[in-house]
Design a protein around this nucleic acid. Structure first.
Lengths: 183, 183
DNA sequence: GGCTCTCTGTAGCACTCGCTACATACTTCA
DNA sequence: TGAAGTATGTAGCGAGTGCTACAGAGAGCC
């Protein structure tokens, strides 16, 4: 078969990630996924080896997308503004989908379920480092940035869970409270 | 059959909740659950009607346990201390299990999956009200308590996700940062 | 005794799951 | 040309899923 510029596997990985971001990881089954990707479960197993490996790949792709989005953020003029900017970034549709899938995986990881726990373990450190870097570039001290990153990331992810229940306006005001307290 | 003081259904509900708190809701299937409860899937369907109804019941029982724990907390001497006390309560093993199951359900709810979304919607408001009541009894103003409750609850739940990754000590220090900033 | 209602066990249906054995193309390289 | 490697389609296995039809046991009531 002629080789495209992207390998078939990479192409499937990207599109499988799109599908998982939309439908979630949890009920994900190979046959419907394959149908949506115009291929067969046979092919997914061929290219990825197993469903668990596919899921690990999907989580890695999603994390990489999130990281790229964070890294692309320009420095904010203050820590207070950085928190608000992070929230705006988190709530962009593409990013919010990545975050909710991350939370889904992390909550499964709490029960020790694989491959979720391992994937979450892998991405946690680099992810917090990216948040810390943004906070630091926005004026946070090098010493405080890591803990601040943990705090802000935890809060924003928690609020993403509440957002559909409490409404965008209320949730955003809570973020402002956080920014005022920490900035 | 002779009637016990607790109905068979309530007894099963309590023990099914214990099982779900341990193993998670997601992979939950009736046969292993029934085996652990010394009954049969047939009986679970008889008493609860369907798996979805059973899950809704389990979530309700778990929420009720959490609420009872929060309501049993004595008022803290300050908002700062209240946040620390809430964290200590959240990290008690029994409570942490309830919270991680709630996060599991909430993350599924983000994808619109039932019966999780409906259960989370039901418990969210009363839960936040309980947190707000504790904060208020610890000195928070009546006006600020609700938003403060949303903020604190989101953060503590987010940190519960990080705790196995970052360690108890680090996570607790982050909670202290939050308490210092908000207290 | 019979009748009803609650509860339980057996067996099985119809379905989906992840995964694989097998055969088959097509490309590439010797 | 032939061997090797990559990619794909067909069919199906074995296990597990939620759920249910059916029969029966035991208690309470008339």
């Amino acid at each position: 078969m002629l080789h495209l510029s992207v390998s078939r596997r990479d192409d499937l990985a990207e599109r499988a990630t799109d599908y998982a971001l939309e439908h979630g990881l949890i009920g994900l089954s190979l046959r419907p996924l394959a149908a949506a990707l115009d291929t067969s479960d046979r092919m997914l197993n061929y290219h990825f080896g197993s469903k668990d490996a596919l899921i690990a790949t999907v989580l890695a792709v999603s994390t990489e997308r999130s990281m790229a989005t964070i890294r692309a953020m320009p420095a904010s003029p203050s820590v207070r503004q950085a928190i608000l900017d992070l929230w705006d970034t988190f709530t962009q549709p593409a990013m919010a989908r990545c975050q909710r899938m991350y939370v889904e995986a992390a909550s499964l990881g709490l029960f020790g379920r694989e491959p979720y726990a391992a994937s979450v373990r892998d991405s946690n450190a680099v992810w917090l480092a990216a948040i810390a870097a943004h906070l630091q570039s926005s004026g946070a001290s090098k010493a405080k940035a890591p803990r601040l990153a943990t705090l802000v990331d935890a809060t924003l992810n928690g609020l993403l869970l509440d957002r559909p229940l409490d409404g965008d306006a209320v949730t955003r005001r809570v973020v402002t409270d956080l920014a005022d307290a920490l900035g």
